[in-house]
Amino acid sequence: MTPRGFTKPLYILPFDHRGSFQTKMFGWKGELSTEQTAEIAKAKQVIYDGFQKAIADGVEKEKSSILVDEQFGAAILRDAKAQGFHFAMAAEKSGQEEFDFQYGDDFAKHIEEFKPTFSKVLVRYNPGGDATLNREQAARLKRLSDYLQGAGQALFMFELLVPAEQEQLDHFLGDKTAYDLELRPELMVKALEELQAAGVEPDVWKIEGLDRREDCEKIVATARQGGRDNVSCIILGRGEDDAKVHEWLNTASGVDGFIGFAVGRTDFWDPLVNWRAGKNSRDEAVAEIARRYREFVDVFEAGKKA
């Protein structure tokens, strides 16, 4: 299959969190009731309203996007489509170490129903980990990749997480920061290469924050090797604080091939928690989410100009 790619600016507000949202934001376990599902959907609507306010306040619509799940965000997906927003839709089952489809063999029907701009997967893939698991994941991902290229229903967005294997972490005496700086970038390059060799062809790679410009450059070079000239990368926030996210945005924005970001929890988590605790109003939560999103856009665009 010929890689397609996406090269326009892309600033994503992701709130496709499901398992973590249910347990950490709401403190609920097990199967949800209809009322609980509606309560989570209501909270996600606050985030979506913040996104819309940011655009109303001046963030360019063509550069903006949301990422949300069908389970709690079906109404939002439909509205985003009606309003002509770029939007990405999660295809993976939430809260699993191993990638699998949220809706099993029916994954294509759900993509065709909503027709998102991007079909997104989150995948934990460490080249130094379980080789059998990696092959099995790659086979499922190739199935989605082939479908998206053949059907043309959506572009393919791939969120790559490379969690440390215990042996790798032990090498750094348990220091995750050292692992992130010294080994993870190398493993990410190798993961891209292995997935490409397995026939997995994303249009956009979502990449965990990188501290060094040269590591960002290596990731882009790998993503675009072999004629994949229009494949691009975006940086993700990993729920870090504002200062760290600003660092990552500044680093990535100066590298050709990094077209934007996906920053979610750093944007919406505190405003939502405060709203649910009665510390601020719904309007205040919406306004704060919009302000934070605009701030990340401004940081990335300033870095691009610099």
Results as ranks from 00 to 15, higher is better:
residue 1 M to H: 14
residue 5 G to C: 03
residue 12 I to V: 15
residue 12 I to K: 02
residue 16 D to H: 02
residue 18 R to E: 12
residue 19 G to V: 13
residue 25 M to P: 07
residue 26 F to Y: 10
residue 30 G to S: 11
residue 38 A to L: 06
residue 39 E to V: 08
residue 46 V to A: 10
residue 49 D to R: 13
residue 56 A to E: 13
residue 65 S to Y: 02
residue 65 S to A: 15
residue 66 I to L: 09
residue 68 V to T: 15
residue 78 R to H: 10
residue 79 D to I: 04
residue 80 A to T: 08
residue 81 K to P: 03
residue 84 G to F: 06
residue 88 A to Y: 10
residue 89 M to F: 14
residue 92 E to D: 04
residue 93 K to Q: 13
residue 93 K to P: 09
residue 100 D to L: 10
residue 101 F to H: 12
residue 105 D to V: 11
residue 107 F to K: 12
residue 112 E to I: 08
residue 112 E to H: 07
residue 113 E to Y: 09
residue 114 F to L: 11
residue 118 F to N: 08
residue 119 S to G: 14
residue 121 V to W: 01
residue 124 R to C: 12
residue 131 A to R: 11
residue 143 R to I: 06
residue 148 L to T: 09
residue 152 G to F: 02
residue 155 L to T: 06
residue 156 F to Y: 13
residue 157 M to Q: 12
residue 165 E to Y: 00
residue 168 Q to A: 00
residue 168 Q to K: 00
residue 168 Q to Y: 00
residue 169 L to R: 09
residue 169 L to Q: 08
residue 172 F to T: 06
residue 173 L to K: 15
residue 176 K to A: 08
residue 177 T to L: 08
residue 178 A to T: 14
residue 179 Y to W: 10
residue 179 Y to A: 01
residue 180 D to H: 11
residue 181 L to N: 14
residue 183 L to W: 00
residue 184 R to L: 05
residue 185 P to F: 03
residue 191 A to F: 00
residue 192 L to C: 14
residue 194 E to Q: 15
residue 195 L to H: 09
residue 198 A to C: 10
residue 206 K to R: 10
residue 208 E to L: 01
residue 211 D to Q: 11
residue 213 R to G: 07
residue 213 R to W: 05
residue 215 D to G: 01
residue 219 I to V: 15
residue 220 V to K: 01
residue 227 G to S: 02
residue 231 V to K: 02
residue 235 I to H: 02
residue 237 G to I: 04
residue 238 R to D: 15
residue 238 R to K: 13
residue 240 E to N: 12
residue 247 E to W: 10
residue 253 S to H: 04
residue 255 V to N: 04
residue 257 G to K: 05
residue 258 F to L: 09
residue 260 G to W: 01
residue 260 G to I: 02
residue 261 F to Q: 02
residue 262 A to M: 06
residue 265 R to A: 10
residue 267 D to S: 15
residue 269 W to L: 13
residue 270 D to I: 10
residue 270 D to T: 15
residue 277 A to V: 08
residue 278 G to M: 09
residue 281 S to T: 15
residue 282 R to H: 11
residue 288 E to H: 08
residue 289 I to S: 02
residue 290 A to F: 09
residue 291 R to S: 14
residue 294 R to Y: 04
residue 295 E to P: 03
residue 295 E to W: 07
residue 295 E to S: 13
residue 297 V to K: 06
residue 300 F to S: 03
residue 301 E to Q: 11
residue 301 E to C: 04
residue 301 E to L: 07
residue 303 G to A: 04
residue 305 K to S: 13
residue 306 A to Y: 05
